[in-house]
């Protein structure tokens, strides 16, 4: 056992491409790090920024969003919407002290099992470099019932 930091990464994948790419990677026995927990959406257009914030606030060290290549979304232009959300989230998250390495957007077609696996490996390495996020779960009260307070 090494005590190397193993980041937890939540991966939101589109049903039509990237999820199949991950599947293909699996059936072709392409190895990729086990750090990513994949969650299948019908399309990246369903990716509500709330999901990303929830993942970070509840223990994820990184979030991966993977959809169909530009122009190939099965619901027309939803992956462009995902791209805009991603760019906006990156800017907003920076103000919270969450570095861009922790949120990654990638495109992968159903045939790109090997590329998708590589993409995951790269992300795991990058997140490992920036270290654990450990978002505090709740604000800690400081003053107990009796004490404190200028009167």
């Amino acid at each position: 056992m090494s005590d190397r930091f193993e980041p937890v990464i939540i991966g939101f994948t589109c049903n039509w491409c990237s999820y199949r790419a991950a599947d293909l990677a699996g059936t072709s026995r392409i190895k990729y790090p086990p750090n990513v927990r994949l969650i299948r959406l019908m399309c990246t257009g369903r990716l509500d920024p709330t999901f990303v914030l929830k993942a970070f606030s509840e223990g994820a060290d990184g979030v991966l969003i993977a959809g169909c290549h530009p122009g190939e979304c099965h619901y027309l232009e939803q992956n462009y919407k995902a791209l805009r959300r991603y760019q906006l989230m990156t800017r907003t998250l920076a103000q919270f002290g969450i570095v861009p390495e922790r949120l990654r957007l990638t495109w992968a077609s159903a045939a790109e099992g090997a590329r998708f696996a590589e993409e995951i490996a790269t992300m795991v390495e990058e997140v490992r470099q920036v270290g654990p996020l450990n978002w505090p779960t709740r604000p800690v009260p400081r003053v107990e019932q009796a004490s404190g307070g200028a009167a």
């Binding site: 509500d48 920024p49 791209l83």
Partner: peptide
């Protein structure tokens, strides 16, 4: 709405009429 900001990010991303990362950045 669990998170007001997240919902607003969704709303803004929906109205911006650009598809290229650099053009999107310019609007943002």
């Amino acid at each position: 709405v669990l998170d007001q900001g997240a919902r607003l990010m969704t709303a803004i991303a929906s109205v911006v009429d650009e598809k290229e990362p650099a053009a999107i950045d310019k609007v943002l």
